[in-house]
Nucleic acid binder design. Structure first.
Lengths: 221, 221
DNA sequence: GCACGGCTTGGAACGTCGTTCCAAGCCGGC
DNA sequence: GCCGGCTTGGAACGACGTTCCAAGCCGTGC
C-alpha cells in the first residue's frame, strides 16, 4: 500500500451511476441496505467521492424513487378515462410492490416530482370524466391518497414476510390471531377471517379504486 | 461523585412511565427526538435500565402509537352508520395530525392492534350500511387504506413546515412551482394551483371519505 | 437481626451509521 | 511544463441502537 492510485476510473463516477447503484442496494436489502459505506464498496471509491455528486442520503432516496416511478406515469393511452385511472393506479401499485422502499419515500416527503405527475394524470382524467370544476381537486386528491396509501401499505405487508412464498402462512397466522379476539367486540374480524388468507391484494386494491370512481360518477347528480 | 446512588427512585421505572416519556419526546422533536439517550436523561437513568422494561426501540414506537390512537377508536355512538364512519375517520385524522410520528409508525408495521380496531369499527358500519357480505371486506379495507394513507400524507406535509403558522406560505410556494411547469404537460396542476393555498385539508379528507361512502352505497344496485 | 439471591439499575463500551474534512492526484489551459 | 481547479477517497467525528456487567436494593428464610 504505497502511493494512492487515483488514476481515472474506467467509468467515471456520476450521479446516474450512483443512483443506479443505490437502487440495486435498496432492492437487494431494503431500506437499511442503502449505506454510504456499502455504496462506496460497490462503486470502488470512498464516501467523500459520493458526497461530491450527491448532497446527502435523502437526496439520493428522492432521486432513486423518482427513477423507479418514472415509468409508472407514462401516457394514459386509454380511451375510457376510468380505465386510464385504473391503469395509473396499477402502474403505481406494481412499481411500489416491486420497490417497497420507494413507497415509504413517497409518503415521507411531499411535493416530489413523481407525486406531481401522478396527481396531474389523475386530474386530467377527472376532467375527461366530466367532474365539475369545483370537485376536481378533491376527487383527484382522494384518488392520489388512496393509491399511494394502499400501495405503501401493501408493500409494508409484503416486506414483513421473508422472500420465500409463505405469504399465505403469514396471513393465516393473522387470521388465527383475529379468531382469538373477543367475538362480541370484534364480530367483523371474525366474519372476514376466512377471506383474509385467500384474498388478492391487487384485486382488492383495484376494487377500492372502483369504489372511488363510482363515488365520483355520482357527483354531478 | 463517590459511590453509586441507586436508592429506589421515588417513582419507580415502569413500562408506562417510559412510554409516556417517549410520547413527550416524539411530540416535541419528531421521530428523531426519540433516543435512548434522551429518554435516559429525561427519566434520570441509563439506557440499560430502559432495556430492562422494553425490548427495543421498535417496541417502544408500537406502544407509543397504540397509546396515542387508543382514544381514536372509541365507541361509534352515532345512529347513522355513515356518520359513524366519518367520526372514526376524523378521529384518526386528528390523532395523526397531532402526533405525526404515529402515522408513520402505523403504515410501517402491519397487524398492529390499533389497525385491527379501526378496521373492525369500519367493518361494523359496512354491515349497518347494508353492504352485501361479499363486499364488506373490500369496502372496509378501502376505507381503512384511504384513512390511514391520507392522514399520514397530511401529517407528512404538516411536518415539512416549521411550527410557525406559515402553512399558507409553503402551499403558495408549491402552487408557484406548479405554475412554472409546462402548461401543455400539466394543465390540471395549473387549473388547481389557485385552490391549493386556501384549501382545507380536513374538509378535503372528509370529502374523500364521502366519495368512498357514495361508491359503497351504489354497490348492491 | 442477618446473610443470601434475585430483581433492578445505570454507566461503559461496541459496532455502525451519516457526514465532514482534507491531503493527494489528475488534467485542461496558458 | 507548470499551474489551479476539478475529483477522489481515506480518516476522523459525533450520535445512534444495543449489549454487557458490576453494583445496589430489598424480600425471603433462618
Amino acid at each position: 500500500m504505497a502511493g494512492r492510485t487515483t488514476e481515472r476510473r474506467e467509468q467515471a463516477l456520476s450521479r446516474e451511476r450512483i443512483v443506479a447503484a443505490a437502487i440495486t442496494l435498496l432492492d437487494a436489502d431494503g431500506e437499511d441496505g442503502l449505506t454510504f459505506r456499502a455504496l462506496s464498496a460497490r462503486l470502488a471509491t470512498g464516501p467523500g467521492a459520493i458526497y461530491w455528486h450527491v448532497a446527502n442520503k435523502n437526496e439520493l432516496l428522492v432521486a432513486a424513487t423518482e427513477a423507479v416511478l418514472a415509468g409508472a406515469t407514462g401516457r394514459p393511452d386509454a380511451a375510457d378515462p376510468a380505465q386510464a385511472v385504473r391503469a395509473v393506479a396499477l402502474a403505481v401499485f406494481d412499481a411500489v410492490d416491486e420497490h417497497p422502499w420507494a413507497g415509504a419515500q413517497l409518503s415521507r416527503a411531499p411535493a416530489q416530482p413523481a407525486m406531481r405527475r401522478i396527481l396531474e394524470r389523475l386530474g386530467q382524467q377527472t376532467l375527461a370524466l366530466g367532474v365539475p370544476a369545483a370537485d376536481r381537486f378533491t376527487s383527484a386528491s382522494a384518488l392520489l391518497n388512496y393509491i399511494i396509501g394502499s400501495s405503501r401499505q401493501n408493500a409494508a405487508n409484503a416486506r414483513t414476510q421473508p422472500p420465500g412464498g409463505d405469504r399465505t402462512a403469514i396471513l393465516a397466522a393473522e387470521a388465527a390471531a383475529w379468531r382469538t379476539l373477543d367475538p362480541d367486540e370484534y364480530p367483523f374480524l371474525h366474519e372476514i377471517a376466512d377471506q383474509l388468507p385467500r384474498h388478492d391484494d391487487r384485486a382488492q386494491f383495484l376494487a377500492g379504486v372502483d369504489l372511488i370512481l363510482a363515488g365520483i360518477a355520482r357527483l354531478p347528480g
